Simulated assay, not measured.
Amino acid sequence: MTTFSAYGMGPKGFLVNRPLNDYEREHHFDVKRRASDRMHYDMSLIKLNSTFVECVDKWYSMRGFVAMVGTTFFAVALYAIGAGIYLATTMSDWFFAVAALIPAGVALFVTKAFLSDAFTYTHYPIRLNRKNRQVYAFRRDGTVLKAGWDEFYWTIYNTKLGMGGGDLNVMGHLLDKDGATVKESIGLSLVDAGEPGRQNQLMFFEFFRRYMEEGPGPTLEALKPVPLIMLPGVDKEKENWLFGWELLTASLKGMPLLQLLLQVFFLPISLFRWIVMRTSKIPRWPQWVEDECAIEPGDPWVRDGRHRAGGLPG
């Protein structure tokens, strides 16, 4: 029987205690072989140095959306509850009061969804340490998953579980002793769809694979002429409204007309994203993680929120 993990945003998280599906088996990555000749990092990087690279999780780019949808449905449900109570009292027909229990259930559900977005953590960082070959992932409950880079079953996950047509993202699964049952999962940030999306996932994973296998120098050299633009210090301070709006708009980079037309959605989502970030805590790695990921003094490959020349790519 499948269950849901508590990792990342959402009351459900990721499906665990389930067998690998055919799509995951077909798109399994071999960390010793290049996934693509090209690569990119999807504006997901918090820190990069000779010891580790740290990135945001799958849920980061969609923060604010769940809160906005939840608030909208809560308002509709609240109106329906009020209307039911009003009709029940004015018409002396308690059928309407009983009927109001349905929107009350909806209100409870969307409140839970809202609270999975707001009043949580601003992001759930994932840190890949190339020196000790360990991966650290910040869970929703504030605990940390630690496992070997080579222990993970890295693959592309399809939200339609192998049927095609769903959203795609790179997942790292920890498997049971049988080598087929998923026990815990982490999700990297890029979410895409279709065959172009699959190619993007290959290039995205290749960035992290090459960093872990070859180091920061060869990785950044191979990235050229694409500039390395880091996120704005989200490990130290909460993002402002402008950055959230820029990030949402940049999701359609290269399509200026769509960027303009979809402001009717991006603007309200950016407002709710700001609310989510204001009400959430910045995750802090426990000291034992920082000790295991100590950066050498004078490391020439240190990159962080200070390295943002050029801003977000349009």
Rank of each mutant, 00 (worst) to 15 (best):
V144H: 00
R63S: 12
D192I: 03
N21R: 04
L257D: 01
D37M: 08
T2A: 14
A100F: 11
V289K: 09
L87G: 10
E24T: 02
V144G: 00
S92Y: 09
K160C: 03
R139I: 06
I85R: 08
K131S: 04
G217M: 12
V191I: 15
I156T: 08
F205E: 04
A75P: 00
R308T: 00
F204T: 01
L202S: 01
G244C: 07
S5E: 12
L20Q: 08
F114Y: 12
F65M: 12
I81L: 04
R63C: 10
N49W: 03
R127M: 13
D291L: 14
N240S: 09
L231G: 06
A180W: 02
A67M: 07
K236I: 11
M43I: 03
S44Q: 00
G172K: 03
V144S: 02
M9T: 05
T72P: 02
Y23R: 08
K47T: 05
V234T: 05
F272S: 02
T159L: 14
M230R: 09
R130F: 03
K160H: 12
R18I: 09
T181E: 02
T143N: 10
V276L: 02
M171W: 07
I229N: 11
M163A: 15
D178P: 06
R278N: 07
L108M: 13
E246L: 15
Y153V: 06
G148V: 02
Q201S: 05
P268F: 06
T249D: 13
M68C: 05
V264W: 06
G105F: 13
L174C: 09
P283Q: 06
V276I: 00
V234Y: 11
T51Y: 02
M68H: 06
T71Y: 04
Q201G: 00
L145T: 13
L231S: 09
D291Y: 10
L45E: 02
Y157A: 11
E206T: 04
P283W: 07
F208R: 06
N240R: 09
L161R: 13
M91Y: 08
E206S: 10
D93E: 12
P11L: 14
R127F: 08
G244A: 11
G84Q: 01
N129I: 08
N21Q: 04
P11Y: 11
R38G: 10
I102S: 14
V110N: 03
E221S: 14
Y23F: 15
P218I: 15
G166H: 14
D30Y: 00
L108T: 10
R278C: 09
M1W: 14
F243S: 01
A100D: 08
H27T: 09
R133A: 13
N158M: 07
G187R: 06
T90L: 08
V66K: 04
F138Y: 15
R139D: 13
F29N: 02
G310D: 10
K47H: 13
F14P: 04
T122E: 05
N49P: 06
L258H: 13
G148E: 11
Y60W: 14
A309E: 15
P283M: 04
M68A: 06
M1E: 15
V226H: 14
N169C: 14
T72Q: 07
E184G: 03
P19Q: 15
A294V: 08
D37I: 00
V264P: 10
D167V: 12
V144T: 09
F272L: 05
R284V: 12
I275H: 10
D117L: 05
A222N: 08
L267W: 13
Q263I: 00
